[in-house]
Design a protein around this nucleic acid. Structure first.
Length: 134
RNA sequence: UGGGUAAGACAGACGGUCGCGUGCAUCUUCGGGAUGUAUGAGGAAAGUCCGGGCUCCGCAGGGCAGGGAUGCCGGAUAACGUCCGGCGUGGGUAACCAUAGGGAAAGUGCAACAGAAACACACCGCCUAACGGACAUGUCCGUGGUAAGGGUGAAAUCGUGAGGUAAGAGCUCACGGGGAGCUGUGGUAACACAGUUCUCGUGUAAACCCCAUCCGGAGCAAGACCAAGAAAGGGCUUUGGGCUUCGGCCCGGCGGCGGCCCGUCGCCGCCCGGUAGGUAGGUCGCUGGAGUCUGCCGGUAACGGCAGAUCGAGAUAGAUGAUCGUCAGAUACAGAACCCGGCUUACGUCUUGCCCAAAGU
RNA sequence: CGGGGUGUAGCGCAGUUUGGUAGCGCAUCUGGUUUGGGACCAGGAGGCCGCGGGUUCAAAUCCUGCCACCCCGA
């Protein structure tokens, strides 16, 4: 009876599915990465940098990166988890057919979920993706 | 109470909501979908410093040289450079801690600068008994003796006292110190203690070396398989030499087996780009093992034996997060990547034993 | 994840094998030369030899732990 208690957040009752990241929505090919870096657009904010580009598919693909500049593996994992959780809450409002790369800056250390989430929201707003769709 | 020292434990818990990996079951539009359920990082997962398992190099073989590692004794272990218990040495008021700790009377090398001299020494100093010379009955010069004193140095011939002497010297003696040999006692042994004989110039082997013991190379990106794309074609000629019963055998060449030899395995002409590998993907390897827990027994201990119970990650751009509440308060170092045993390094909280100091009873 | 290498003056490098003096080039500073500058000439300063222990009388060098950077392997 999950749909009963989660009716406010989950869209099962209203017909659309719950947002989960499927495996095909993970960006992993090396050529796609260099293509996005070369010809895609980018938006930077205080804690994250967002790259994006149209991919010609009917769905979005996303990658979360934290380089060694961020810190050791614990800090890198923490950064990616915060970014992924933030992304999960806004991803279904984004237009379909894009590739995204979300990169952690080293300022992300010691930051709370609230900080990272608002930073990522700010970056998405500045990217004007939603206006482009309209 | 303060300081120190040793050993051990934990690594927030519980509940609500959303989210993630994997196993299993069911459904399925077969999609790396859905639902349910179980489970889901560490004491160091780290550094990659050692030791193994496993895989490939055909087997992992022998000898030699060379190289590497270890190095008190006994034990533990699959093994170790690890661990345990002892011995010696050093440090600390103590509890306790550290210890690459074999051999320098097998040989070679090195010891800068300073200093006269660093396997043997005479610069200053002391003496000149013996020998030679001069003046002349005592001095000077030569020659020679001397390591007690000065000075140099990290290090200079065992220390103190007495005898002795021309002056001195383990030259002699007393006491003390070091080393080697022998004997005895205790101990499995390292070693300790006692006696006795001889002896008294250093350090360095984390310098070469000697002695004893051990060591093949790479590493899961090892390696195996699957399907896909692409290529497996042509020419010159008779294809290492010999024998042949046409199966092969002997010799030779090339290559592999970390170096050489032995041994062994594979291959055998030339040319045309000239050979069979390369690219990206998937599956396996991939977690049940020197496993974990409990009890009993043996052992000072490391550890071992027996019995019972139990299954606790397996990702592949890489799964543990977000948020709310309660507990007095809530966290440092930090994330499995083939698997184990250690070492080292990083680090929060708590408990216990012991030592020192001060005060009180 | 695994394998290998390098850290010496502001920069680029010797010296480490065989332990005792830390050196070279460029840059920098001072003086000379020039009307001035460059070039040239002469002189000087600048180093806890990546960090911590150990061996040794003595360590950049030998041994042993850390740290940082770089390279290679699908």
């Amino acid at each position: 009876m999950r749909s009963t208690w989660s009716s406010g957040i989950c869209r099962n009752q209203s017909g659309s599915r719950v947002f989960n990241m499927l495996k095909k929505e993970v960006l992993r090919n090396k050529n796609d990465f260099s293509s996005i870096y070369r010809t895609g657009r980018s938006v930077g904010d205080r804690y994250v940098v967002l790259f994006f580009k149209k991919n010609g598919l009917g769905y979005n693909r996303t990658a979360f990166l934290a380089s060694k500049k961020v810190g050791n593996s614990v800090r890198r994992n923490r950064a990616r988890r915060l970014m992924r959780e933030s992304w999960r809450r806004i991803a279904e409002d984004l237009p379909a057919g894009y590739d995204f790369i979300i990169i952690a800056r080293n300022t992300i250390n010691e930051r709370s979920f609230q900080d990272v989430s608002s930073s990522l929201n700010h970056a998405v707003r500045r990217s004007r993706l939603k206006e482009q769709v309209k």
